[in-house]
Simulated scan of single mutants.
Amino acid sequence: MATELIKVEEFTSLIQLAPDALSKNKNSIMACNQAGQSILDTIEGEGMTEELDAKAADYLKKVTVTIKNMQTRRSPITQIFDRIRSAFTSDEKAIDAKDATTIPGKITLARDQYAAKKRQEEKKRQEETIKRVNVENEKLSYKSELNRLLSEHYNDYFLEKSAELEQLFNTLHLNSFDLKSKLIREFSVDYPRDHFNKFTKEVNTVYLDLTTKKAIRGEVIIGKYAQFAEQFKFEMEDFRQAFIDRLGSKRQELYDEEYLRKTNLEAAERAEKERKEREEKERQERAAEQAKKEVERKEKERASEQANQMNSLFAGAVASIAPPAVNAKVTEKIEVLHPQGILEIYQMWWMKEGSQLPIDELAKIHRKMITFCEKIANKDNDKINSKYVRYVEEVKAK
């Protein structure tokens, strides 16, 4: 808005009126105070009466008139100072960089928009990098978990068949020795394709789509059957041979126990107990060896997975290195989306600051709310019932 020029003559003539206006205002103040002091002395000396109250009310009306007269005298002078201040501030506002309508303001806005654009681009780049790293990490963990589950699937079958072979050996008796010996010697060392194909366990993921998971599953399964079949044959042949090698001594033990049973029942029972204890010890040793192998296998898989994850994390860290940032100051601003948000803002303020402030400062901050509560108390007699709030009457003469 254009500011009217202030003429020197106008300014000079008004300034010349200032001493006279100030003098008259001071005289008005002096006369007002003198008249008021007389009334105040009477009130303090004799106390308030109806007649004196009426006289005081009339005096206060005259005070109001006096103030208006004083304002009328100084108004032309103060107005010209307001116009002078407005002239300077208007000129300053014309190039205020905080005002979006000025040229500096438009340049500031353009820079802010550019900084915001660059920041959004960088945030998007970082989010895409993080997502890419998360995808790669989940690929590794998904593949590792599938391998683990598939190994468990195979190991469960191996343990099942191992226990079955062990059971055949441990339940050998003379009357069925030949039959069970034949079963042990001919115990299958082939890993069934049907069992391998029954592997259907799946792993929940966050970032991987079905196509990617299917491809990884194919990578995990391909060639695994041949590997498991070779492993099963090698381990089961070794396991079976250990029992085959002991068939002769087992038969002799059973003959000896049978002979003792006919000649010395107590010795036979003792020999049978010792044999079962020895077989149980051997079984535990075999189980411990198998458990040791399983731990070593899992440790090897874990080490491989950790190495892959470290490589992926390093690649992600390199990719996330930010380019030179735009010269910008970023501050968080609150946008309230719902009235409930105001309550949540107030709760944070109260916990962090409000609860530690003195009463007078809190009252100043909450003046508008206190005024509202006073209004409804006076209008509707609707009051807060609390030991922390007290209503005090304020009486003013009309």
Rank of each mutant, 00 (worst) to 15 (best):
K139N: 00
I80R: 02
Y346R: 13
G316S: 09
A2E: 11
E9D: 14
T371F: 05
E230I: 07
K106G: 00
I244E: 02
Q231K: 09
L159N: 10
F88K: 09
E301K: 06
N147Y: 09
I43M: 05
Q34L: 06
A363Q: 11
D91A: 13
R73E: 15
A319D: 07
K333I: 14
L247Q: 05
L52V: 04
A377M: 05
I130W: 00
A115H: 07
Q167R: 14
E305D: 12
A288H: 05
D360G: 01
Y225N: 05
T331N: 12
K368I: 03
K214L: 10
K161P: 05
I95T: 08
N147W: 08
H153Q: 11
V133M: 14
S151H: 14
A35D: 14
K273A: 13
I130H: 08
K26D: 00
A242L: 00
T371W: 00
F228Q: 09
A115Y: 06
G316F: 06
N175M: 13
R270V: 09
A100N: 11
P323V: 12
R85L: 11
I103D: 05
Y191Q: 03
K273D: 13
L146F: 04
K368C: 01
R125H: 01
K368R: 14
V392A: 04
A363F: 04
K198W: 00
I95E: 04
Q227T: 08
K398I: 13
V295T: 13
E128C: 03
E299H: 08
V336E: 07
H173T: 15
A291T: 08
K224F: 03
K201V: 06
S355P: 00
F239V: 05
D190V: 05
V389E: 03
N155M: 11
V330N: 12
M236Y: 01
R390Y: 04
K62Q: 01
N378E: 15
L40N: 06
I334L: 13
L14R: 02
L146P: 01
Q252R: 13
K273W: 02
R73F: 03
N147H: 10
L52C: 03
Q284L: 13
